[in-house]
Amino acid sequence: MIDSIELLIFTILPPLLKASIITLQASIFGAIFGSIGGLCFGVLNSDRIKIKIISVLIGLYVIIVRGTPMFVQILFVYFALPEMTHVNVSPIMAGIITIGLNSSAYLSEVVRGSINSLPNGQWESAEVLGYTRYQTIRHIILPQALKNALPVITNEFSTLVKESSVLMIIGVPELVKTSRDIVARELRPIQIYLVTAFIYFVITGSIAFFTKRLERKI
């Protein structure tokens, strides 16, 4: 028992906590990248704004990203993209780019759907009152659309944290890769994977807790 506690405190927890910071970094930066992309693409692809050619390109991007596994996407970004562009990226950067691209495709659909679901009257009111198109989107449409989409968006962030585990395939020392390395060294899969699962649970639980509070506040 004492052995197990010592193992947990001195051998398992420190590297896993360090790895969880990397998981969080990749998820947070990926989510920021994805949110900006998703917001822009969602607005540009919404019914009242869309320009056909841009809409087709965004649609194509969304279909490709949603139709392929993140596993393949990360391999493409890390191994194929540098060959095509002659720009090398670090594993963590490749991970952030992949998470961002993936999340922006999903979020763009969420934002687009949420904008389209708002009544036409909101656009017309803003038009009658003399708002410019930018003012209408910035001050009338997005505050309502994002509020309506908040549960889905935050759910997407929780998913991102969990999906960031695919970064292990390109050697990013995030939670799953680190736990697997510790298992290989310590041969205690039950304890180590339970702790790993618990850390994921704490992170996603915290996201759920704060988003519930945010939803109530809004």
């Binding site: 009257g121 909101q122 017309e124 009111s125 009658v128 505050p143």
Partner: peptide, 17 residues
């Protein structure tokens, strides 16, 4: 135009946020 004509729609279309 804004200073000339105001419009109150049937559903009022106020901004709920």
């Amino acid at each position: 135009r804004v200073r000339s004509i105001g419009f109150v729609a049937q559903q009022f279309n106020l901004f709920p946020h």
